[in-house]
Design a protein around this nucleic acid. Structure first.
Lengths: 211, 211
DNA sequence: GCATTTCTGGAACGGTGATGACAGAACCCG
DNA sequence: CGGGTTCTGTCATCACCGTTCCAGAAATGC
């Protein structure tokens, strides 16, 4: 019976209606948390960018943690859209490469903060917050599973050696996270090179191509 | 002419001598920063664990940032000892595998915090602190260069395909960082599995072994 | 219109944490 | 042993930040 969480789009029917868009505020918060981290982002910064005062934020999200969790959810569905083709695409290796390149575009792009909110949170929060740990764990599972699915398709298509999909999904997951952590430190070129090396290695997986 | 930094073991000759061991304090600080992060670690915690009061810390290290930088240096020489055989060892692939296993032992071990202070700092500090960015960049360079050296030896020994050492050094660096980030989130089993998948993949690099 | 309910901004509260000031303590050198 | 120098601990300062309080505002249904 703590913070009841944001009622995304239910009908309050009674009392004064909310005067701001919860999703829009979550988006702004996401951007700030993504760019600066959880601790380094203050409620005041969010009120400044959204024009919504602190008490309204607390009424809608419970507390800072609730807002962060909402932002994390939003981030996860953003990434989920790019993961989807991995899980249920029609290609094997090509789907994987396409995803890695999507990540690379995100790191190089100036439109979004470089790095991954989930990776950042894993490192910054560590094991301190159980819900954050759970969300991050679930996210990793989702990504890894999608990578594995794509690699299984690659196995069936004879693109890569049988029995390697699980291990290689883990390998890719680790490589992606490492590149994202590096990108966060401002070394976008290095991060992009890491992802390129990942792609090169994937290409070498092709059965029949000399080692 | 700012904080003069800790005079590690010079002879003060004049005035009251320091009554605590700078290295020992740095070690404690390192442990706390490593485990909790920069922001989450307070000077008070360090005074509590060391018995040294805040003003003495400020006299020796300038400020919290100076202490953190000293801790980072200490961490880097700790890791440097494990990197050394990579750079100047006599084996190729085996040296690389040995290093990955050293990282894995660190993650699984209960004696040290799981994760890597440099990776943690890259993510937590981001691009905010120029000196931290520089130290992290230098550390990455050192690791990558050592990995490349070992892989070059592997190339010369005919263990892996020629011309792949640079790319694969980057790949390993990314994979290691990703596993370390995952370990920091408390998922030590997952992190260990990532490192194992890295080792498995390295084994598949062996020229002559079927893809 | 009126009572009720729920929102809203602004100001206040309480805690925390980095840093600086200061008086005393411990050591060197002459 | 006294002067000069540098350490040490305690306390104060100052800023920041998450959170709550409160009085007013805006909607609902009767």
């Amino acid at each position: 019976m703590d913070g009841a969480g944001p009622q995304t789009s239910s009908t309050p029917v009674r009392g004064r209606p909310r005067s701001f868009d919860v999703d829009a505020v979550t988006e702004v918060a996401l951007h700030l948390f993504w760019e600066q981290g959880l601790e380094a982002t203050s409620i005041e910064q969010i009120t400044a960018r959204t024009g919504v005062s602190g008490s309204s934020l607390y009424a809608a999200f419970g507390n800072k943690r609730g807002l962060f969790l909402a932002a994390m959810d939003r981030y996860r569905s953003f990434v989920g859209a790019a993961i989807e083709p991995l899980a249920h695409g029609s290609h094997g290796v090509d789907d994987v490469v396409e995803f890695v390149e999507w990540v690379r575009r995100g790191i190089v792009s100036d439109d979004q903060p470089s790095g991954c909110l989930v990776v950042n949170s894993m490192v910054e929060v560590g094991e301190a917050d159980h819900e954050v740990v759970t969300a991050a764990s679930s996210h990793r599972e989702q990504l890894r599973s999608a990578l594995r699915d794509a690699l299984r398709r690659a196995e069936r298509a004879g693109e890569i050696q049988d029995g390697t999909s699980s291990g290689r999904a883990l390998l890719l997951e680790a490589g992606l996270f490492g590149a994202l952590a590096t990108g966060r430190a401002g070394a976008t070129d290095e991060a992009a090179a890491m992802l390129q090396s990942l792609i090169d290695e994937i290409r070498r997986w092709h059965v029949g191509v000399s080692v």
